[in-house]
Amino acid sequence: MSTRAISGLVVPPKGHSVWLVTLSAAAMAFLAVFALALSVTSARLAASWAEALSQTATVRLASPPEEMELQTALVLDVLRTTPGIAEARVMELDEQAALLEAWLGPDLPLDALPLPRLIELTETREGPDRQGLRLRLAAEAPGAVYDDHTRWRRPLVQAATRLQAVALVALGLIGGVTAAIIALAASAALSSNGQVIRVLRLVGARDRFIALAFMRRITRRALLGATGGTALGMAALLALPEMDAAVPVLAGIGFQGWSWALPLAIPPLAALLAWMASMATAFRVLRGVT
């Protein structure tokens, strides 16, 4: 019988605290999978919204029909001489019609409408000096409005970023509660095994040996529970109904590609947490026992 083998045996295999550890580790791991999915999803959304809207912009030009061509030329002139703008393209009338059709139906008497002219911009990565551009446009072509979509982009990106912060706070809370439950279970296990500790002390066992003996079982249970909970959580995510792309916010909840590997880190992290919490508790309790 070796030291390692005996260290796994000296704590009697009874007590409800080990079940508390297994079940709570499972529940917490299950929740952690969802919090992690939310965090990954919101990060992805924030990035994709920022990306999709960041390098395009439009200039909307409204002016009396007879001045339209002149104004358009002036605006294009300004745009071509503005650093940070890669391309400026006047939208054809039928392209505009296609855009409007989605909103107003196909039988639109376009000729009768005083439509503004749309100029589509592709910006370089750095983008133009937006304030300077607005001022120049105002001076040269008062009917031209530069729109870089920040109005749309900012609240979306902000919402996604907040969602991610909430998810991270949830992960932190889950970790904290798990550590607290495990510390509680470890201290319950230690105090209900006074005789085991006395006997081990009598024969010269170090605190480290005694703490390890208690910690091993708790850590193993936490690992077991967290593995089960993680598996259930991932299965539940897979079983979520396929969302219609028309509900773009919900469409992406879950993991994609390599990010499916992230929840696999939950069980080892739970075991590490259990190890630290139970060791710290054991040393603290043992110092109080002579």
Partner: peptide
């Protein structure tokens, strides 16, 4: 580790065999 003690109320690890209990001063250290 270097002192053997026979306690008046001889306490053991009740879930381990006599043999394992007797070996404990060695295995636990």
């Amino acid at each position: 580790e270097r002192i053997g003690v026979v306690h008046q109320d001889c306490q053991f690890l009740d879930h381990l065999s006599v043999e394992q209990n007797v070996g404990l001063p060695m295995t636990a250290t």
